[in-house]
Amino acid sequence: MYYAVTLATLVTMGLALARAVIGPTVYDRVLAVNMFGTKTVLLVSVIAFLFGRPDFLDLALAYALINFIGVFAVLEFFRTRASRAELDNEAGQ
């Protein structure tokens, strides 16, 4: 049973990766990467039981934390870059 869930999660991660490659905007990519991250958390939790290694759950939680912070870091990066580009545009006119 675990194999089916693992497979479904892996396929979904592949679909999310496809969306991340297609884009078209940077926000689509961030959404896809965020989805990929939550699926990784689920995958690691299931694998912890598939292989009988409960200590994997710590990794899952750590991954959830990093994923959350990562999304905010990327969004912040693009926001500052966008506003800086806007300032440059205004200065240029």
Partner: peptide, 17 residues
């Protein structure tokens, strides 16, 4: 629960595409 969970994960992935 796991079956339906796997299904809904998959549906979300298809939808995102």
């Amino acid at each position: 629960l796991l079956t339906f969970g796997g299904l809904s994960v998959l549906i979300g992935g298809i939808g995102a595409l």
